[in-house]
Nucleic acid binder design. Structure first.
Lengths: 202, 202
DNA sequence: GCGGGAGATAGAACGTGTTCCTATCATGGC
DNA sequence: GCCATGATAGGAACACGTTCTATCTCCCGC
């Protein structure tokens, strides 16, 4: 039997297993931060996490699963941080969304190699990583719709979701362009801001 | 000396070289159409194009360059086809842009494996492929701004370019989602259409 | 205590992208 | 015609993702 999705942290029985899981993601994060996508080599991750190569593959069925799982963990942290921040500054939806995007983007730009590794993994992922990808998309959409309507309890409308998804699309493309050196950080920010103001003129 | 960009067709001296170049791209196209990204194996491409492996690498410095160059060729064909089509149907910019996008998308969906190969290569490309990537972006933006303002001779405004780029971003994300099985062809089309009507309400 | 089984380890082995090397070939200048 | 030089063929070699095998360890039910 070969699993096709990564084991999630909660469905791991023993404490030792949860700890291995965490060590693997920590090692991935660290290697990616230092050397980007190419430096995240499966043997290196296994070494640094102090597990055998076979064990690494038991927890994460491929390098892409591994990196996208690391991305999920980062996004969960980031989304939780925004949820705790009960006042997103800005008077209009456009301003608040721009704030959320720019802050997230700046966070990513602080660790270019890490961002490169996570972004490329995300973009290269195929159907077998669909579960993890969906989680990322869901978290991002949630962050954006919350910024559009702070404090609202009713679920977002279809229009809101579409707008959030379009902004997410633009953001991802901008990230890819930045990661691959096709645009500077400033251009990325400017394009994002123009796109948001086009989509959220109210 | 190792080149970092692919040799473009025009800067190849002899007819024999231009022919090798074409044979290589033809083989790439064929293999991708039949088996997708994984089937485009460098040894297989070299065999089918009837060149040595070393020659293949002299023309295209990596598998990604190779696939993105194939994408450039397809896009050039497609853009030329739209330019010849002097009347794009539709009364509004939104309708015309939607027409162009849907027709292109349907063309891609006719060869899912080819699309998967080209899309994943495009998304995985790193800085060394920037030249080719820029060409694709330029062609796509040109196609879209032309659809927005058919028959216009003055260059597109900044706003036009931004809108075209955002639509391009959404289109690419939708393509990735479709290629990786996260969304169906119908959902892809619907999302695209919603995005265009949000961006081009006039 | 103890035997059995799931999960872990160490490391060999395999496939494919990439590099490198050498012999051969083609071509343009004399 | 002949030579110098760069391009191509053919194939070995290497790196890293992935798979496989053999062995070990630890925990659970008895």
């Amino acid at each position: 039997m070969s699993t096709t999705t990564s084991l999630s942290a909660d469905e791991l029985g023993s404490a030792a297993q949860r700890d291995r899981h965490r060590r693997i993601l920590d090692a991935t994060y660290e290697l990616a931060r230092e050397g980007g996508f190419d430096a995240v080599q499966m043997r290196a991750v296994a070494d640094q996490a102090d597990v055998a190569l076979g064990t690494l593959y038991r927890y994460f069925p491929s390098k892409i699963h591994l990196l996208v799982s690391a991305l999920v963990r980062e996004f969960e942290r980031s989304e939780a941080a925004f949820r705790e921040l009960d006042v997103v500054p800005g008077d209009t939806a456009a301003e608040r969304v721009t704030f959320v995007m720019q802050r997230t983007t700046r966070g990513l730009q602080r660790d270019p190699r890490l961002t490169e590794a996570l972004t490329r993994a995300f973009m290269f992922a195929d159907a077998s990583v669909a579960t993890e990808i969906r989680t990322v998309v869901r978290l991002l959409t949630a962050m954006l719709t919350r910024a559009m309507h702070p404090g609202r309890t009713t679920p977002p409308t279809d229009d809101d979701t579409t707008i959030a998804r379009v902004i997410g699309d633009v953001w991802l493309s901008a990230l890819v362009a930045w990661v691959t050196g096709r645009s500077t950080a400033a251009e990325t920010g400017a394009h994002l801001e123009r796109a948001v103001s086009l989509l959220l003129r109210d």
